[in-house]
Amino acid sequence: MQQNKKTLIVFSGDLDKALAAFIIANGAAAMGSEVTMFFTFWGLNILRRAKGVHVKKSFLERLFGSMMPRGANKLGLSKLNFGGLGAKLMKFIMKQKNVNTLPELIEQAQALGVKMVACSMSMDVMGIRPEELIEGIEYAGVATYLGEADEANVNLFIG
């Protein structure tokens, strides 16, 4: 099998964009590629645990954290969200059409060995601690991304 690397930067925390990112990542992994996903800024919200974890935070960090969606099930759509109603409708339609949910796609990505890396700088800015993210995530910075991107033949930015 050919070994080609693919990387995706997941900057967006919108449900539709996250779905697209994971479908591409899982598809690439199924084609035999080594896939790395880098989650930065709003994209980190996709990896948050649904349940709040008790960690020490400043007032601002806590406030910021409470205003962002907590995990893959809480994301809104980039368009026609209507305060979350659009996302609910989209999930309903997807279920009817037997499309995998975002949590299922994340699980599938992990089973396929897709590497997920959280950007430690944006975690710091947004006050997100490693304990608040799902299991199996690595933490790194831009040099790690660029190192991987250099070896890859597809590099996507989902923003």
């Binding site: 899982n26 598809g27 992994a29 199924a30």
Partner: peptide, 15 residues
């Protein structure tokens, strides 16, 4: 049958 993209190729890859 009934699976949506990328389900079938993921199943195929794993098989």
């Amino acid at each position: 049958r009934g699976m949506q993209c990328p389900g079938p190729i993921v199943q195929l890859f794993q098989a």
